[in-house]
């Protein structure tokens, strides 16, 4: 690797000035998710996780928004990006560095971006990527309830989406609005999370069952909770197959922001 470390640091620091300016403006398309304690899909009572209040983007980041980002930060253009930060599939469907191809709609979610790019985008907006727990917490809501994971219809909806090809080309906002006022957590694209690779999956799910009994007890019971675990399994399997420089056609992202606790 020839790139000197200092250059990398510079590279990461470059958008800070911009971020400070845009913080207030950017919270407009965000809504508050009121925190709470939840049991992750894979968990049992003792594994309950506390999630603090946070702001989340109402929509996933769109193609046109990401286009504006690369124009402002050319080091994230397709031909400029470092392989370390994004593999060859990065923005592969774009016509060139500055143009979407005809098959991509401006208001469809951005996909084909790496974790590094998504993280940087959020930082440049004064935001960050959601953690797995934040994302899962917000995404367990359907249109009426905070935790719809026990509803069979809700899980069937998620499972059906996992089987629907090419949904990445639908528009943002085309799925349902959930309890918090957030769209498209299910039904459009997968989304990057900050700590996507913190759950280690070997890829051999049968082995994972006894590898970490807290995480994967899903194969045990029959019934609604089992169905629920199947949806979770698929998300965790997907995350487990990722590396931070992968760019994937069905994977986008959105950002979150901490709520300032001002007395």
């Amino acid at each position: 690797m020839k790139t000197p470390p200092l250059k990398i640091i510079f590279f990461f620091a470059i958008c800070i000035g911009y971020a400070l300016n845009s913080v207030i403006a950017q919270t407009e398309n965000m809504v508050t998710v009121k925190g709470g304690v939840y049991i992750p899909l894979y968990g049992v009572d003792s594994t309950a996780v506390k999630v603090d209040d946070f702001l989340m983007d109402v929509y996933p980041v769109s193609n046109s928004e990401f286009l504006a980002f690369v124009k402002k930060y050319p080091q994230w253009k397709r031909s400029h990006v470092k392989r370390l930060f994004a593999d060859k599939n990065y923005l592969v469907l774009w016509k060139d560095d500055n143009t979407l191809s005809d098959q991509l709609k401006p208001n469809s979610p951005i996909t084909g971006i790496s974790w590094f790019a998504a993280k940087k985008y959020c930082e440049c907006q004064g935001k960050r990527l959601p953690t797995i727990d934040e994302w899962e917490y917000a995404a367990m809501a359907d249109d009426k309830t905070i935790d719809a994971r026990k509803k069979e219809t809700y899980n069937q909806y998620i499972l059906e989406w996992y089987e629907t090809p090419k949904s990445f080309n639908n528009s943002i906002g085309s799925t349902f609005k959930n309890y918090w006022g957030i769209y498209d957590l299910h039904g459009l694209v997968w989304e990057w999370t900050l700590d996507f690779n913190s759950v280690l999956i070997s890829g051999e799910s049968r082995k994972d069952v006894d590898k970490d009994s807290n995480l994967f007890c899903g194969s045990a019971a029959v019934g609604a909770s089992d169905l629920m675990n199947y949806a979770a399994f698929m998300r965790y399997a997907f995350r487990g197959s990722m590396k931070a420089n992968y760019a994937v056609k069905n994977l986008g992202f959105r950002c979150v922001k901490d709520i300032d606790i001002t007395p």
């Binding site: 890829g203 082995k207 997907f238 056609k249």
Partner: peptide, 21 residues
């Protein structure tokens, strides 16, 4: 997982692959 494989997971542990890879 190929049942003709002698090895962990019949290859499953070594072949886990993301879309586009």
């Amino acid at each position: 997982d190929l049942h003709a494989v002698t090895g962990p997971g019949g290859g499953a542990t070594s072949s886990f692959v993301a879309p586009g890879h």
